[in-house]
């Protein structure tokens, strides 16, 4: 049996979008270029293209989310697909139905794509491995593992403001340990060939051996921000923390909170990003989040075009008859 990336079809086209890891630079650039075209759709009077007319996309959220689910829903609707939002925590699993049973039932309703968010790492891969050949899966965040569409909308935002990736130094600040966003960003940034990726945070919130991903580790915020072109603040994920990783939010803000004063260590034209939702006064000061260097709301807007691109690319790879391989 030939081992290949399950995200890709026989021609190397995107079939599922589960993780940035293992995808080539050309494919990431294709997503960004396509998203650029979809961004233009919002300039139309009718903010819709008929590409996925008659297709059904299911937002399968096993973990709550507002921004991600909403932008996926908006993206699907702008592609003219029908969208079903399922909040699974509250329904089937509570009655004891297994994940596979839930999937089989949704497939029986002739759904074409699952957008999956789950608290367990690997959930989207598991689902992709078990769906019918005509069904596509997009990972909207699985545990600590990956959040590839968030990473791609961040790359889109960086490219729109900075142009080229090659000369950039990007600093990711905060709770790297629990962050699927950081993992996907690191893979995307290194694949797209930025000059340097730094992760900054207390020892308790930096995963061991993170250097093997090709990043430099800093425990001092100012030192890590020095000369950075892009500063990405991460949310402190209190809900995922087990045990005493931090003395207090107040002390965390003193040391790692992004303030105007600390941001001055980065380049004067550095941009500030945050995947949201932001904890004001914990990982970022309001004056920075709302300040002139912040592109946080642009990130949200770009999320729609990037998710349209990923969904259109995946849905465009239709197995033709013989694609029923086990």
């Amino acid at each position: 049996m030939i081992q290949r990336n399950m995200q890709l079809d026989e021609q190397g086209r995107l079939r599922h979008f589960l993780s940035i890891e293992g995808l080539k630079r050309a494919l990431l650039v294709e997503i960004l270029d396509l998203a650029e075209s979809f961004a233009g759709v919002t300039e139309q009077t009718v903010k819709k293209v008929p590409l996925l007319r008659g297709k059904t996309i299911v937002n399968l959220f096993f973990e709550s989310s507002t921004r991600t689910r909403t932008t996926f829903e908006l993206a699907a609707k702008r592609l003219s697909a029908d969208v079903l939002n399922l909040n699974i925590t509250a329904s089937a699993t509570a009655k004891g139905e297994t994940l596979l049973d839930t999937l089989r039932n949704l497939e029986a309703m002739h759904c074409d794509m699952f957008v999956v968010r789950h608290a367990e790492s690997g959930a989207a891969h598991f689902i992709a491995a078990n769906v019918a050949p005509h069904v596509h899966v997009v990972n909207a965040g699985d545990g600590r593992h990956a959040h590839p569409t968030q990473a791609m909308l961040d790359m889109f935002t960086i490219r729109r403001v900075k142009g080229e990736f090659a000369p950039l130094t990007v600093a990711i600040v905060g709770d790297i340990l629990h962050s699927r966003v950081a993992r996907s960003q690191i893979h995307a940034l290194t694949t797209l060939g930025v000059n340097e990726v730094r992760v900054i945070g207390p020892k308790t919130l930096i995963p061991t051996a993170v250097e093997t991903l090709g990043v430099h580790v800093f425990h001092d915020l100012r030192a890590g921000l020095k000369g950075a072109d892009v500063v990405i603040a991460l949310r402190l994920q209190n809900e995922r923390m087990q045990g005493a990783l931090l003395p207090s939010e107040h002390e965390y803000f003193q040391l790692y909170g992004l303030t105007e004063d600390k941001l001055a260590a980065a380049k004067p034209d550095a941009i500030v990003m945050h995947p949201g939702p932001i904890n004001r006064g914990v990982e970022i000061a309001s004056s920075v989040a709302d300040g002139p260097q912040s592109v946080i709301l642009q990130q949200v807007t770009h999320g729609i075009a990037v998710r349209m691109a990923v969904m259109a690319m995946a849905m465009g790879t239709v197995p033709l008859g013989e694609g029923k391989a086990a």
């Binding site: 294709e30 396509l34 759709v41 293209v49 590409l51 259109a312 790879t317």
Partner: peptide
């Protein structure tokens, strides 16, 4: 984005 053969040949890259 308006072609009628998207479901047959996918998206023009």
């Amino acid at each position: 984005f308006y072609r009628d053969d998207f479901t047959r040949i996918g998206l023009n890259p």
